[in-house]
Amino acid sequence: MHWYFDVIKNYVGFSGRATRTEYWMFVLFNFFILVIARLIDWLLPSSVPIIYSLYSLAVLIPTFAVGARRLHDIGKTGWWQLIGFIPILGWIVLLIYFCTDTQDKENVYGANPKEFIEE
């Protein structure tokens, strides 16, 4: 759960690098929160998914920020996220990039974040 809160604390941090674990744990917790928000909206009498929509807007910038840091971790610019606007092919490319392992050495975006992780 701390990965989720670390991303939220670094709300607009588009610089630096994020490991695969940090990115995918944020995605996982974010998915579960979105499902819960959708269920709550379903239980409410309103036909507008207000909680789901508000939460989605609240995490929009942190989602792009952690995505940019994840791409920085493999040596790509954060602008590669825009390829996601290309249906199917863009999503596949992003999925491959987000699953790619960290560059072992320091790159132009900073030091290897795996060196600082205590096991």
Rank of each mutant, 00 (worst) to 15 (best):
V59K: 00
N10T: 11
D104Q: 12
F32V: 06
S47Y: 04
N107T: 09
F26W: 03
L43M: 09
I117W: 11
G67D: 02
I36Q: 01
Y11I: 07
K9G: 08
I40S: 00
N30C: 10
I51D: 04
E22A: 02
R70Q: 03
T100F: 14
F64R: 01
Y4G: 05
L39N: 10
I74K: 00
T19C: 13
L54N: 06
R70F: 04
Y23P: 01
K105N: 13
F116Q: 08
V48A: 12
G16F: 03
I61Y: 08
V27K: 03
E22F: 14
D73L: 01
I92F: 10
F98H: 13
G110V: 00
I88M: 07
Y11Q: 13
A68C: 14
V27Y: 06
V66R: 02
V59Y: 02
T102V: 14
L71G: 03
W79E: 06
R69L: 14
S53T: 15
G84C: 07
P49S: 15
P87V: 05
L60I: 11
W79S: 06
E119P: 08
P113K: 09
F31S: 03
I51A: 11
G78F: 01
N107K: 09
I117G: 14
I117H: 11
L54Q: 02
T63Y: 05
I83P: 00
P87K: 05
R69C: 04
I61G: 11
I92E: 11
M25W: 12
H72M: 06
W80P: 04
G16Q: 01
E22N: 00
A58R: 12
Y4I: 01
I83G: 08
D6S: 11
I51P: 00
Y97V: 09
G84E: 08
R69A: 11
I50P: 08
F116S: 15
L44K: 11
N107H: 01
I8A: 13
W42F: 14
A111E: 15
C99W: 09
